[in-house]
Design a protein around this nucleic acid. Structure first.
Lengths: 340, 340
DNA sequence: TAAAAAAAAGTTAACGTTAACATAGTATGT
DNA sequence: ACATACTATGTTAACGTTAACTTTTTTTTA
């Protein structure tokens, strides 16, 4: 017997009604034990597999969560996914994974499809190049599918957000640098439009402000999230006459810091003696650098877990409130900041 | 208007039959343009989203592929997933991601669920601890859901496999080592039961055999896939009296090699002068080691792509043959083998 | 031992969509 | 002008399952 055996076929085989077979298989009451056994035996013999598609149609529940990831090779996200999966697994939910490849149109299409597939909820981390949030506002208002943002969020449009406290973490790591006595500190930022870039820059500024250190516009550069952009930006900074060069650098993330480090070495300077540097995200490579990179470790796994848990609460409780949940990142002190 | 608008509701709103509305929305023929416009306008106004669950029930097609991954934080798999996604995206298929966490029972449950969700096909890479393949044999024989193995495969049970030519790659990298003049070569293997371990070990053995180099049982150790297992195994090897120690090591993968390297350094030996070593998989850290690791780069992205393409052929063609597709890995020569 | 209650089974309709067939209306050709 | 052939629309049933109700059978109780 092959796969698409139905309840009806089992019922015919046994001379029962479909309903009795359904009850037997789903362990409902009002089925006498002998009948249940006959049904289970037949189901097994005939190779019955329940059809969740039909079940979903009846129950308007798919036990499926839509997951929208901007870039899966990003090393941060696989950890997040593991956190999400560990939660969904326990509740017997499945995950539909969509990968936006940092393209807004792919993200948009993903949402449309997930909606059509009638997922019970959506977990999404936005691509970088979002120009406006109308799509999301609309979705949150018009659809009745709960949605939770994680990591790359939009706050204030009616959906909960689970993110790391980037502003605070950037503040802390910058304060750590200042604690070493540096006052001439540059900032290699990410794309201006991206929320993460903004928050980290804000934390950086607040840290300087606390000691009344003035911002030097020349040292506040928009680099990007990748090695080569960090490299390019740092190379530019190093062209400044020695007297007006910074003595420490805060990079928007680790890859940017790696690029910058390469540029620093190439110009013949030492880290941290001539130029201290800190990153953000604790890339797996950070501790392997010639001078191990001081950085911020983001709790990827817990972030996924919290986001999934919040989503389940939104699915199961009728009046679950909108929340912005911030997780604490951990400072990972190594040597590039000047420690030891 | 909220989300669960149906064709019927649109039909009532416009005084049409459900069927005409269906035809209009799906761009079928036999709908006069004026009607189509009225329908589209109403659908848009009322916020209609097609219900793929219902569509699937009618068509017995879900446009969904089940993906079973043993360990998503493994860095190799996210690249594979990207390859898969790039293919499925083009055909408007969605991916249901299940994460087995290297647990056989989770994998088993995943397959059951994917079958119940009536996915159109399954892509699977096995967990390490599979004791017997009856589950898969049974599935392949009894279900009519096409299945393609990738990376961690079972050949010869009726499903196609897409993998890298591990035996050949292990042969080549070992030959490279022999080319440096080494003859006393140890092997740090993975778990004996895992196909990958077997193949890499086979390639290793074949490489030695070619030059008539005898295998030394003491040097053939079962380490494992992780740093600490490589560390432990290497530590054992280094306890041998200097005269009967190997002078080069082939590790089953990069993490095992990293662990071994740590053990080598701790014992005061130099790499590659006192002990050469090669790995497998080109981990992101391989090039950052104090002595950069010579290794094999696996074409993860193409592997995902090929696997997905093969699966689609199985789905769409009636008599697509069972194939074992082997991709070519690339030797990445750095310094740990003794080069330069 | 008959009535009442409980258990076991069956029947019908519904979930949202589409295939297949049926019908009404419109155009085409002679 | 009248059959012929399309075109536009409608009707019915089906996909596999379950909720809600109904009927039959068994058990309990007075």
């Amino acid at each position: 017997m092959n796969s698409n055996v139905t309840l009806k076929q089992i019922a015919e085989e046994l001379g029962l009604s479909t309903m009795t077979v359904s009850r037997a298989i789903n362990n409902r009451s009002n089925v006498v034990e002998s009948t249940r056994q006959r049904v289970l035996e037949a189901a097994n013999r005939m190779g019955y597999t329940p059809n969740y598609v039909a079940k979903s149609l009846v129950s308007s529940k798919t036990f499926t969560i839509g997951l929208v990831i901007p870039e899966i090779t990003h090393s941060f996200f696989p950890d997040v996914i593991r956190g999400i999966e560990d939660v969904t697994y326990l509740s017997d939910y499945q995950l539909i994974l969509t990968h936006a490849s940092e393209q807004a149109d792919r993200e948009k299409k993903a949402i449309k499809t997930l909606q059509a597939k009638r997922v019970d909820g959506i977990l999404i981390s936005l691509v970088q190049s979002i120009e406006n949030y109308n799509l999301y506002k609309d979705f949150i208002k018009r659809s009745n599918i709960p949605l939770v943002f994680f990591d790359r969020c939009v706050e204030g449009i009616g959906a909960s957000c689970v993110s790391t406290n980037d502003e605070m973490s950037a503040y802390q790591i910058t304060r750590h640098l200042i604690g070493h006595g540096y006052t001439k500190i540059a900032h290699l930022g990410g794309p201006k439009k991206v929320a993460i870039s903004k928050k980290r820059f804000a934390g950086f500024k607040r840290a300087l402000k606390k000691d009344g250190i003035a911002l030097n516009g020349e040292w506040m550069v928009e680099a990007g999230f990748h090695e080569k952009e960090g490299y390019r930006a740092m190379t530019e900074l190093l062209k400044l006459p020695a007297a007006s060069r910074p003595e420490a650098v805060v990079a928007v993330n680790d890859p940017a810091a790696f690029g910058a480090m390469e540029a620093i070495y190439e110009s013949g300077l030492r880290i941290p003696e001539d130029m201290a540097i800190v990153g953000f995200s604790d890339d797996i490579r950070a501790k392997l650098m010639a001078c191990p990179l001081t950085t911020v470790r983001q709790p990827a796994y817990s972030l996924g877990k919290k986001a999934a848990e919040k989503l389940f609460r939104c699915i199961n409780e009728t009046d679950e409130p909108v929340e912005n949940i911030e997780l604490v990142s951990e400072l990972v002190i190594r040597q590039s900041c000047g420690c030891e």
